[in-house]
């Protein structure tokens, strides 16, 4: 349905482009203060990593040199501590880490794999060089397992659709992020969206169009997410989508970190992932 509504501005843009009614303009936006952006995901059995960056004025010049770009973007020199509800604390080191496997960058990380446990609450405390304090907390939710992944080939075609079944946890408000990818997790997801369980009785089915061919690898991931993470992801999507769509309402980022001029997300990751190989 969102596709359908996006269709209107696209159709309009195509019409207008044909009339040469577009031009580049100079815009002077209101002055603004930079914001500190936190991105940290806790996952049982994985090292703790955190990315601390700063926002830039929308049209601020972007350094051509990569090192200068990183220096402008990354916020270093902060003290970052994660605490568990039982009092253990883990201080992250300020090192730039390039994870070859996930292709992600972090500037704060722990040496050891911290014992993150499901069902427990963790808090984050960041003290910046200027003394500003940024805090956040999160609970690690249980995994909602994928019940089954069903691959169905079209009768008349060689293409298949993939149906993903899971059972919603009863008597509670649940939020999910559904991701499906071809071949590898490094590819851009075919579907990546968040949903809540308000319209669901018990079994949730996610489906795809008939897009997958024989021999394909399909990776299904269902994240069970907190409401704060759901709100954050939705607000990020709306903020991105409203650029250029005159019919959309922009959204500020709904963040779960507190502190002067701070925003971002601190959340646990609880997901089930099923890799399916389509028969040749």
């Amino acid at each position: 349905m969102k596709n359908a509504l996006l269709f209107l501005p696209i159709a309009l843009a195509v019409m207008l482009a044909g009339c040469n009614l577009e031009k580049e303009v100079d815009i002077k936006l209101p002055e603004t203060q930079e914001r500190i952006v936190v991105e940290c995901y806790l996952e049982p059995g994985a090292p703790i990593n955190l990315l601390l960056t700063r926002s830039s004025g929308y049209f601020d010049p972007i350094p051509e040199d990569n090192l200068a770009f990183l220096n402008q973007t990354l916020v270093n020199g902060a003290t970052v501590v994660i605490r568990s509800e039982t009092g253990e604390s883990y201080t992250l080191d300020n090192n730039l880490v390039f994870n070859q496997f996930t292709k992600k960058i972090f500037n704060y990380s722990s040496h050891l794999v911290a014992p993150i446990e499901r069902g427990k609450t963790y808090s984050l405390e960041i003290t910046l060089e200027n003394g500003d304090l940024i805090t956040a907390s999160t609970s690690i939710l249980p995994v909602v397992p994928i019940d089954s992944v069903v691959v169905e080939f079209n009768d008349t075609d060689t293409l298949a659709r993939v149906l993903t079944y899971l059972t919603d946890r009863p008597n509670e408000d649940n939020y999910y992020r559904r991701m499906i990818q071809h071949s590898s997790l490094d590819t851009i997801p075919d579907q990546d969206f968040t949903t809540d369980d308000r319209f669901v009785e018990d079994v949730i089915v996610f489906g795809t169009p008939y897009d997958y061919g024989r021999g394909d690898t399909v990776i299904n991931t269902i994240f069970h997410i907190e409401k704060a993470y759901f709100d954050f992801l939705e607000s990020v999507q709306l903020a991105i989508a409203s650029n250029g769509n005159p019919f959309a309402q922009p959204s500020p980022i709904i963040s779960n970190v507190q502190g002067p001029n701070a925003m971002g997300i601190f959340t646990g990751l609880s997901y089930d992932r099923v890799v399916s190989f389509l028969p040749d």
Partner: peptide, 14 residues
Amino acid sequence: LPVSRWTFQDVYGG
């Protein structure tokens, strides 16, 4: 209009 911009790295897979 947005006054600033930032980079969202997202989780592995995103």
